[in-house]
Structures are given as C-alpha cells and as structure tokens.
Computed example of a mutant assay.
Amino acid sequence: MPASALPLPPDLQFIERGWLSANNAVFVRGVSAVVDTGYCIHAEQTVSLVEASLQGAPLQRIVNTHLHSDHCGGNAALQQRWPQARTSIAPGHAQAVIDWDENQLSYRPTGQDCPRFQMDEVLQPGTDIQLGEQRWQCHAAPGHDPHSVILFEPASRTLISADALWENGFGVVFPEIEGTAAFDEVAATLDVIERLQPRLVLPGHGSAFSDVGTALHTARQRLERFVQSPERHALYAAKVLLKYKLLEWQQLPLAQVQTWLAATPYYGLLHQRYFADQDLAQWHASLVADLERSGAARREGTMLINQ
C-alpha cells in the first residue's frame, strides 16, 4: 500500500523538505511541536512553514532526533520566534550544546554551519514524550550518529525514523569516518525498527513510506556492502558531504571548492585512513569528477554547479 493511502495521525503534519534541510514533523493539536528543523540557510522558510501549520497557535516544543546541522539548523530561528518553546535534544551532546563545542557537534569537521541555540532537556531512550495528542516512545538509534533517537507512536504505528532508515537506505555512518566501528550499531537499529513493526515511516529525508519490509531489506543489503568494503562507505561519505555543501552553495569556483575540501577535517581523516595511496589534491579532484559523472554536478568553465 502506498504511503499516500495511509493517513497521518490527525494531529500531525509531515513536511518533506529535500536533502539540504531534513523533513519536519509538525504537531498541530495538543502539545504543539516540531521534530527536526532543517538547515540554517532555510531557517526563515522553516519558521514560515511551522507558522502556516500552527495557524496562529504558539509552538510549545522543539525536538531534535540528533544534532547534525540539517536537523537542528532552524532551532535558533524557531527559538527567537517562540521563546517559550522548550527544546529537547537527543542524549549525549547536552554539554557540547551548553559549551557550543562545534567540533563535538560535528559542524567544524563537516564544514557545515549551525547558529547557536539553547537546549532545555534531553530525550531519554526508554521513556515517552508528549507530542501533539499522543505519547511517543523514544528509542536509541545509534549508527548514523551515536546519540540519535527515533520516535514511535504505537497506536497509529507511526515512526519518525530520522536518518536511521530511509526508503532507499540510511545516512552516512559518521562514527566510521572518525575511526569508531559503528556498522553493528546500524544493524542493531534496523532490528529495533523491525521489532516496532511501523505502519508508516516518516524519514529524515525523502518521502513517507509504508513498505517497511522492503526498505529494511534495501538498508541491510547496503550495510552489508559497506561492511564488506569499508572504503566504499568512505567514498560514499566523501561524496555526500561534498554534494551537501554544493546544495548550499549552488555554484562556486572550483578553486574555492578545492580550498574547502582541504580545510574540512573529515576529508583529511578519510584520505589518511582509506585513500592515502592517492595524492591528496588528485583525490579531491576525483571526488568532483565523480559528482560530474553521476550527474550531481556540472562544470562550466571554472565553476562547479549543482544539478
């Protein structure tokens, strides 16, 4: 059954954003809330979308499944618009938010941006949180991010899966970039999702879907390829981070792209760990060429342009 044939819970609106800004789940009845808030350059749009969904009602809660920049980049703008809203973040990074440690929060290593925001409380796996008119279960979902959570409403069997499960896979396994084994955690999180038996999945990116069995099978096949060939995941991560930045820039001189690659710490880690047999500048150039070959970017003179 297509996801469009499965109605959302009546207190919930799902806003599909694209790949630069994570999707938003907006609760419009009961305890008004938004789960995940997009990237910072879309913050004004995020505020407008939430305002339109709430139709004049105040926002009471801001919730982040994890603190990658595309999931919390609108927090500061939403807090400015609704100062009374309480912000709940996934566990593990509370002190980093208080100290605003951009290394721990991954913004400096990824070469991404996130305006500083405040947090009020931590989401605890194994507990429930009131969102809209229902209580949502909070489950740990490490792998993509060691501190990520997913949210599940058992009556409607609706799952907010963030980047733990998409219809065609899952997000980059960031701990692996840093040298921490996390593929087993991805597998364990997929097992948690299977046990929950969701009827409808609202992913962090892409459309809502209901064929969860096929999505899990696709994700496990992808994971097995990464386990068998970790350098495949490393190359995927390198290209995803570059494509993500290109979505933000839209276009940039190739010389500045190369400068950004050289200055972004995760590229140094990936090169050292997986591609040290290649000249660094040549490896950077090969990443750009891969995006061109895949149709994700095109070159016009000295400019690299998003497609």
Rank of each mutant, 00 (worst) to 15 (best):
I129D: 00
A57S: 14
A76E: 12
F275L: 07
P154T: 09
Q45H: 10
D113H: 12
I150P: 02
A57C: 08
V28L: 08
L151Q: 09
I15M: 06
P7L: 07
Q130Y: 00
V97C: 05
Q221A: 06
Q272Y: 05
D70S: 14
R17K: 13
V288A: 08
R195L: 08
A234V: 11
N24G: 05
I129G: 01
V240A: 10
A140P: 02
S294W: 08
H271Q: 08
S21F: 00
E167C: 04
G126P: 10
V149G: 02
L59R: 02
F152L: 07
F170A: 02
A57H: 13
E248K: 12
P58W: 05
E102T: 15
I62D: 01
E224K: 12
Y39D: 03
Q258Y: 10
G92W: 02
L291T: 10
N168E: 14
V26D: 01
R273V: 08
G56F: 04
Y39Q: 01
S53M: 05
S53Q: 12
G111D: 08
L252I: 09
C40M: 11
D36R: 12
E292L: 14
V257Q: 02
P253W: 07
H71Y: 04
P58H: 08
L270P: 12
Y39W: 08
F14K: 03
P115L: 03
D163R: 00
A297Q: 11
V149N: 04
T65C: 15
C138G: 03
L270Q: 09
I41A: 08
A297P: 10
H233E: 07
R232S: 13
T264P: 05
F117S: 04
E292S: 05
L247D: 11
R299Q: 15
L247N: 10
D113M: 10
A164G: 14
V50Q: 08
P198K: 02
V227R: 15
A285I: 03
A208R: 13
A188T: 01
I41E: 13
A263H: 11
T214C: 06
G179Q: 09
L78Y: 01
A237Q: 07
Q228R: 14
T158V: 15
S106W: 13
H42E: 13
V47G: 04
H139R: 11
F27I: 02
P265Q: 11
A215V: 03
V47L: 03
P253K: 06
T127Y: 06
Q55T: 09
S53F: 05
N168D: 15
E224Y: 04
Q197S: 14
G213Q: 10
R232I: 12
L252Q: 15
S210G: 15
Y244V: 12
C40K: 06
R232T: 15
S69M: 05
P125M: 10
T158I: 06
H68L: 14
H217C: 08
T127C: 13
S161K: 04
R157T: 05
C114K: 04
F27N: 00
A234T: 09
S161E: 06
A208G: 06
T158C: 15
